[in-house]
Computed example of a mutant assay.
Amino acid sequence: MADDPLFILVAISCLIVAGILLFGVGTFGKGGEFNRKHANRIMRWRIGAQFVAVILILAFVYIRRQTG
């Protein structure tokens, strides 16, 4: 399974979502002007990345069920 390109893409997309989430939580915890200015933008980026990750996960499961 680790040599499947779609699985690798799913794993990378999940790591990107986690990275954006950690960045957002870090800036929220720190507060300040940057957080006030960019908190909503960071949240929108996370939601978009999460949407892509979920679509890729569903595609991976669908394809694996068809071939498996």
Rank of each mutant, 00 (worst) to 15 (best):
C14W: 14
G29F: 02
F34P: 01
L56T: 07
L56F: 14
L21F: 13
I63R: 15
N40R: 10
K37A: 04
T27Q: 14
S13L: 14
E33A: 09
R36D: 05
F34C: 04
R36W: 04
K30A: 06
I12T: 12
L15W: 13
M43K: 03
S13Q: 12
K30R: 11
G26I: 05
A49C: 12
I42Y: 12
S13D: 09
G31I: 02
I8L: 15
G26E: 09
I20R: 02
C14Y: 12
I42S: 03
I63C: 00
V52H: 00
A18S: 03
G32A: 07
R36S: 08
G26H: 11
L22C: 10
I16G: 01
I47S: 03
L9D: 13
L21E: 12
L22P: 02
E33D: 05
N40C: 02
G29M: 09
Q50I: 03
Q50E: 03
A53Q: 05
G24M: 13
F51M: 05
I47Q: 03
V52F: 12
V54R: 06
I16Y: 00
A53L: 06
G24L: 10
R64I: 15
V52L: 13
F28T: 08
V17S: 01
V25F: 10
L58G: 13
A39Y: 13
F51D: 00
F51E: 05
L58N: 07
K30P: 03
R36L: 09
R41L: 07
L58Y: 08
L15C: 07
R64Y: 15
I12N: 09
L21C: 07
R36H: 03
L15R: 06
A53C: 11
T27I: 10
I63H: 15
A18E: 10
L15V: 02
N40I: 12
E33I: 07
R41A: 05
R46D: 04
A53P: 04
G31C: 08
R41G: 06
R36F: 03
L56K: 01
L9G: 04
R65Y: 15
R44C: 08
L9Y: 10
F23W: 09
R41I: 11
L56D: 06
I12M: 12
Y62H: 14
R46G: 00
F7D: 00
V25P: 02
N35M: 05
V25T: 07
I55R: 00
L58R: 11
I57Y: 14
G26M: 06
G31M: 02
